[in-house]
Write a protein that binds this DNA or RNA. Sequence first.
DNA 1: ATGAAGTTTGACACCGGTGTCATAATGTCA
DNA 2: TGACATTATGACACCGGTGTCAAACTTCAT
Lengths: 336, 336
Amino acid sequence: MKKVTINSVAEYAGVSKKTVSRVLNNEPNVSPATREKVLKVFKELDYKPNPIARGLARNKSFIIGCLYDNPSKSYITRVQSGALEACHKFNYNLLIHPCELRGTELIENVGQLLTTSRLDGLVLTPPFSDSQELIDYLKQQDIPYARVASAIQDDSSISVRSNDEQGAFELTEHLISLGHRDIAFIKGHPDHSATEKRFSGYRNALVKHGIDFKSHLVAEGNFSYHSGADSAKEILDLDPMPTAVFASNDYMAAAVLKLATQRQLKVPGDISIAGFDNAPIARHIWPGLTTIAQPVEEMTRQAVEQLIMQISDPSTEVYQKVLEAKLITRESTAAR
Amino acid sequence: MKKVTINSVAEYAGVSKKTVSRVLNNEPNVSPATREKVLKVFKELDYKPNPIARGLARNKSFIIGCLYDNPSKSYITRVQSGALEACHKFNYNLLIHPCELRGTELIENVGQLLTTSRLDGLVLTPPFSDSQELIDYLKQQDIPYARVASAIQDDSSISVRSNDEQGAFELTEHLISLGHRDIAFIKGHPDHSATEKRFSGYRNALVKHGIDFKSHLVAEGNFSYHSGADSAKEILDLDPMPTAVFASNDYMAAAVLKLATQRQLKVPGDISIAGFDNAPIARHIWPGLTTIAQPVEEMTRQAVEQLIMQISDPSTEVYQKVLEAKLITRESTAAR
DNA sequence: ATGAAGTTTGACACCGGTGTCATAATGTCA
DNA sequence: TGACATTATGACACCGGTGTCAAACTTCAT
C-alpha cells in the first residue's frame, strides 16, 4: 500500500498540489466543481495530510506541553484533565513532561524538551509557574506559556489562579467558629507559592479572631502523604494535643486522619481535621474531609484555552484571572 | 533575533548543510578539524535543530501516544509514569489521549489523533488493549503499538501483562485460609478483560477449597469508587452478611471500607476487606487494605520500551511477557 | 610517480506540505 | 464587443532537515 500524499491526490484528481492544499484548508477561490472533485479523491484514496509536513511549512505542531513536579497525583490528574479539555476543543494535543524543579538543570531539561518536540506552547503548573528562572528562559526563547496558580506578578503573561489565601482564611474561620482555639497547621512544599499563601490565610484568621499564633503548632510538610504522616506524628504527640488540624492539602490531612484513627482517637470527636484541594480522597475516606475546593481543572482549562488563543493570535489581550475557592464541610470537623 | 537553522550554521562555518547534518548526527567520515569547527559554531549561534524538519525528513516524530479510558486515576498516573520513564530513556516524548471506548466513534477519534499529530507508536492500556476493532485498525494503518494488560491472543504484537487470575486466586486463598467461607466479590468494568480474569481467579479458589459459589455474593462494579459504594450497600445489606469482601480494585474496596466504618462495623473484626492493584489509597486509609500488587508502572515501562525498540528496528522479536502479581497483606483482613 | 582504495566533502533531490505571484478563465459593465 | 475587475489555478520557491551519489582529496603500496 503506497503512501497517499498531497502529490498523489493532486495527480489523481488532475489538479495542482496547491489546489489540493486549498481544499484541505478550506480556502476560498476554489470552484465548487473542483472542490467536489478533490474531496471525492480524498475519500477514495483515504488521504490523511501529514501533520509533520504541515508543521514544517507553518512552523506549528499543534501540541501543548504540560510541565509539572507535584507529589499529589490527583492534582496532576486534574491538571491534565483540564488541559486536555481545552486542547481537544481546538484540535491540539497534550504532551506531558514531569521534571524536577531542583533537578540537575531545569533549563537544560526544558531546552531538551523543546529541542526534541517543537511545542506551540507550555502550561506551567506549580512549582514551575513560580520559577522566575524558567519564565525568563521561555520569554527569551519566545515560547508562549501560561501560568497556573502562580504568585509571580507578571502582566505580560497568562495567569489563572485561585484565591489560596482567602480559602485558607475561610477554612480557619470555620474551625474557629466551631470553638477551636488550638489549631495545628501543616505547611506544604516550600517551593510552591501556595504554601505561603495558605499559611498566611491561616495566620490572618487567627489574628482577626484574637487568637495567638503558636509556632509549635506548625509542622513542615511538602504536600506528600508521607510528609503528612510525619507531621501527624509530631502534632498528635503534642501535649496538650490541639483540638484541630488544618493540613495544606488533602493527602496530608488523610495521613493525619489515618494516624488519629490508628491511635483510637475519634474524628471529629477528639480532634477535627481539615484539608485543602477537595481531592478525591477527601470523599473516599470516613469521615469525609472538610476542605477547600480549588477549581484545578477549571484553572488549567482556562489557562490552556487562553494560551491557544494567544498562539493563534498574538495580539490577544493577556488573560489574568483569579477564581474563587470554596469551603466544603464534611464530617471531619465538628464543634469541640 | 534571527532563527538559527542548519543553513545559517553551514554558511557561518563555511561548510555544506550536509556536513553540518553529519556532525549533528554523529555520522562517521567527518574530519576531526571540521567536526570541531562545526561544533564551535553550534555553541556560538546556540543552534537547536528543528525537530519537525527532522521528523519530516526521517518520517518520525519521537512521540508516543498513550490511550486510556479508566475510572481509576491512580492507574492512569502509574501508567503514565512507567511510559514516561521508557520514553525519556530514549529521548521520546509522551502524548496522552484519553477517549471513550464506547464513544461516538473510537476509530474516528483515534484517526483524528493520528491525523493531527504523527505519532511513532501507541501504547494501549485497558480497555483499549482488548479492543479487537482498534487493533485491527492500527494494523491496517501500520501504526506500531504495544498492549498493556491485554487478554487478546496475538503473537504479532507486543504485550506485557500481569497474572490477574493468579493474583485473584491467591488473594481468595488468603481469605479462605483466614477461615472465611462467605466471601463477597465485586466485579470490575465489563469492558476490561481483567474483570473476568479476577473473577475466575476467585471462583477457582473457591472450587479448590470446596466452597460453593454463591451468585448472590457477587456485585457488579465498574472499577470506580462510586460503583464500589453502590456494591458495598448491596453487600452490607445482605443477611447474613458475608465475613469478607474482595473488591476487584482498591477504589471499590475503599468504598466498602468507608460504608462499613460509617455503619460502625469493625474492620477486620466484623468484616474483612480486600482490594486489588495496590493503589496509593490502599495504604492511605486505616486499616490499610490487603491487596494484590500489580506492577502497573513496570508493565507499561516494558511495553513502551519494547515499542520504541520495535520502531527503531522493526525486525526486533515481538516481546510478550507476563509479570507476577504479589499478595500484600495489611490490616483490613483477619481471621474470622 | 602511479594506481587503487579509503576518506572527506558537497551538490542536489527529497520529505509533504504552504505561501507568493503570475497567468488563465470567467464575469461585469459601458 | 471590448476593457477591466474578479475568480480560479498552477508553477515554483520554501520550511529545515536527511539520503544518495559523485567528486575531490588522502593514504599507501608498488
